[in-house]
């Protein structure tokens, strides 16, 4: 993963991701939009064959977009951890259905 800031104005940030696509950016966008203080969040993949995507965040000014992004990543990690715990719990009582 390579990151490059494309533009940084008042409360908005545009950042390019090298080597990432819909998998990560759609998740990040979703996590950002659920956050308080985030006015707008979106991403685009300028060309389907290129491995480069662009994420855009705009906040209301109470928190800088960088902080919103870090919080989104942390929330994502929390969700994944929760999922893994639940999944392993379910896996312990897995039902085999082999004929």
């Amino acid at each position: 993963m390579r990151l490059r800031i494309l533009s940084r104005e008042d409360n908005s940030l545009e950042i390019a991701f090298g080597g990432e696509g819909h998998t990560l950016l759609n998740l990040l966008q979703n996590l950002l939009l659920k956050q308080k203080g985030v006015k707008m969040a979106g991403y685009s993949k300028p060309h389907p064959l290129m491995d480069r995507s662009i994420l855009f965040v705009n906040t209301d000014g109470d928190k800088p977009p960088e902080v919103a992004l870090i919080e989104a990543a942390e929330e994502g990690k929390r969700l994944l951890k929760e999922f893994l715990e639940e999944f392993e719990k379910a896996a312990r009582q897995v039902r085999r259905q082999d004929a």
């Binding site: 990151l3 998998t23 990560l24 960088e66 990543a73 942390e74 990690k77 994944l80």
Partner: peptide, 12 residues
């Protein structure tokens, strides 16, 4: 996925 988010938040 966890690794990706970790890397991203670290770089930020």
């Amino acid at each position: 996925l966890m690794g990706k988010l970790e890397e991203f938040s670290e770089k930020m």
